[in-house]
Every structure is written in C-alpha cells, then in structure tokens.
Design a protein around this nucleic acid. Structure first.
Length: 280
DNA sequence: CGGCAAACCTGCGAGC
DNA sequence: TGCTCGCAGGTTTGCC
C-alpha cells in the first residue's frame, strides 16, 4: 500500500483540486470494503463543501463544512484519482465516486478492498478508534531520538517489527522501514529495545530523510499506486535495498557475487531487505 | 501482556 | 495456452 509518502502525495493532489469545492454527488458502488461504509455516508457528505484535506499516519482526512470528516485509508491497493471533464465510465474496482460542483470526478478504486471509508465529525476526530492510538508523525517536531528511544525501550521484538507498529511511529510501512534501517546502518533483526541513544537519533534522522525524499519524488509506484492526478511516483528508482535481493549494496564497494549483495529475510510474515555487511 | 501467524481479497508474474 | 504457486505497499484478530 501506499505508505506515508504516497498518502501525503495523494492528499496534496486532492487538496489542490478539491479544497473549497462542493461535493454534489456521491455514489457508493460497492460499500463492502475492509469495513462496510457506514450507513448515511453519502447523505452526510452530499452537498458539503471541502474545507481541508489533511493526512494523519496513512489516513486521508477530508474535513467538510459543518463538521463531518471523512476518514479514508487506501489499504494495499487503494487509489484516489481525480479526473476532469465528463465523468469516466466506472471501471472495475471503482467502489466510490464523488463529483464536485465544478465538474471534477474523484474515484476511490481498490482491487483488494483492504481500504476503508469512514465518517466521523470534527469533535470526535481525535478520539476516533482508528486514530486514537497512533504514535507521533515521523516528520513532526515531537519525533525525536529521545522519543523513539523511549518508545522502543520496552519492546522485545525486532526493530523492523517495532517500526511497523503504528503506535511507535505512525505512517511507516514495509518499504520505508527497510530503507530507513539501511540508511541508519541498523540490522533489522536487532532487538528494538537495544536501539537507544545515538542510534535512535540516527534512525530518526534516516526515517525523516527517506520520507522527505520519497514525498519529493511523488512516492513509490510499484504495482497499484498512482498520485491523485494519475501520474506515477518515481522514488522506487531510489531504493537502496527494497526489492533488490542479490543486487549490489549501494554503500559497499565489495563484489556482490562474493558477498551475496542485498539479502532478504522474512520477519513477522513480511519481507525485509538489508545489507548484512553494513547493518549491525 | 506481548509477539507472531493467519486472515481479509484480488491480481500478477514465474514456472511447469 | 493455461494452470498453480508465491508474492504484494496494511491492519486486525486470535492463539500461544
């Protein structure tokens, strides 16, 4: 799925086109996503003006005038795509279609249906069960080395798994965890609690650097992800380790045919990519 | 309580 | 060509 940089890119694209516009039509074509779209969703949204579109972790928050807030999650394969001009004929896996007062069509498409659309209101947003337990935003001021070290201190799980836990830090996924650990020089199998002090600070710096670069590139397009304008991201060309099993490590000068290059291991049922030589 | 595997659902590429 | 298998960016559940 879209991880933080992809969701951020989608949010920016949606905000640029939709803020200030009114949603004049909402069509639920297939409401049984990961969770059923709540009853009354369309009625609550229809006719409202979009005041702001923000991101929290991997959630897209669409603030509407008068208080309703749409919470959208793209799961593994979700897209939110804008098209201008005449509404395109609905395609396979187009589950929800919005239309604005100035003729934009916004389509929520999700082949695997791991995504979700939920509805809350301004007053209940912070306490919403999907958002309440989330850790700090990795690009926020409160995500410091000291804060991460504290969050990891009691974790007896590999650092890879800890960083995927949205309560520790919100918005990382499988790609950017591998990339960040590489740039920080930390072995993904290391016990989370052992990442302290200077290493926690290095890890924070690496996470922020990787995420910023990925956002600047419009995210990573592997299979399903596209920006709100339909364009692809291109950060996948900058991966140091993700999906690069056997290829040379960008930081090592030794011959990959001798060292084996980038290695892959399975942790908590998910692939991790790393350089056994540089990550300790 | 904590950690891990499996489940949710569909598509795609590789290999036979 | 066509089948089966393994794999995929996330999150939640349930079991040990």
């Amino acid at each position: 799925m879209p991880e933080l940089p992809e969701v951020e890119t989608v949010c920016r694209g949606l905000a640029a086109r939709l803020e200030g516009r009114r949603l004049v039509r909402v069509e639920l074509r297939r409401p049984d996503l990961r969770e059923p779209i709540p009853a009354g969703f369309a009625a609550a949204v229809r006719g409202r003006r979009v005041e702001a579109i923000r991101r929290r972790a991997k959630y897209i928050l669409i603030h509407l005038d008068g208080g309703p807030v749409v919470i959208a999650h793209l799961g593994m394969s979700g897209r939110m795509v804008i098209s201008d001009g005449p509404a395109p004929p609905p395609g396979r896996h187009d589950h929800v279609v919005f239309e604005t007062d100035d003729g934009a069509t916004i389509t929520f498409n999700d082949a695997r249906r791991f995504g979700l659309l939920d509805l809350t209101c301004e007053a209940a947003l912070a306490g919403h069960p999907r958002l309440a337990g989330l850790g700090p935003e990795p690009l926020g001021a409160d995500f410091t080395g000291a804060a991460l070290a504290l969050a990891l201190r009691d974790r007896r799980t590999p650092i890879k798994a800890a960083l995927l836990d949205q309560r520790v830090v919100a918005g990382l996924g499988n790609i950017y965890v591998s990339e960040s650990l590489f740039h920080a020089g930390i072995d993904p199998a290391r016990m989370a609690a052992s990442v302290q002090g200077r290493q926690a600070s290095r890890l924070v710096a690496a996470i922020r650097r990787v995420l910023r670069a990925a956002i600047a590139a419009g995210g990573s397009s592997l299979r399903d992800y596209v920006q709100a304008n339909g364009e692809l991201g291109y950060f996948q060309h900058s991966f140091a380790v993700y999906g690069r099993t056997g290829q040379p490590c960008p930081g090592c000068t030794c011959d990959p045919t001798l060292t084996g290059g980038i290695a892959r291991l399975i942790q908590a049922n998910r692939s991790t990519f790393y350089c056994p030589h540089r990550q300790r």
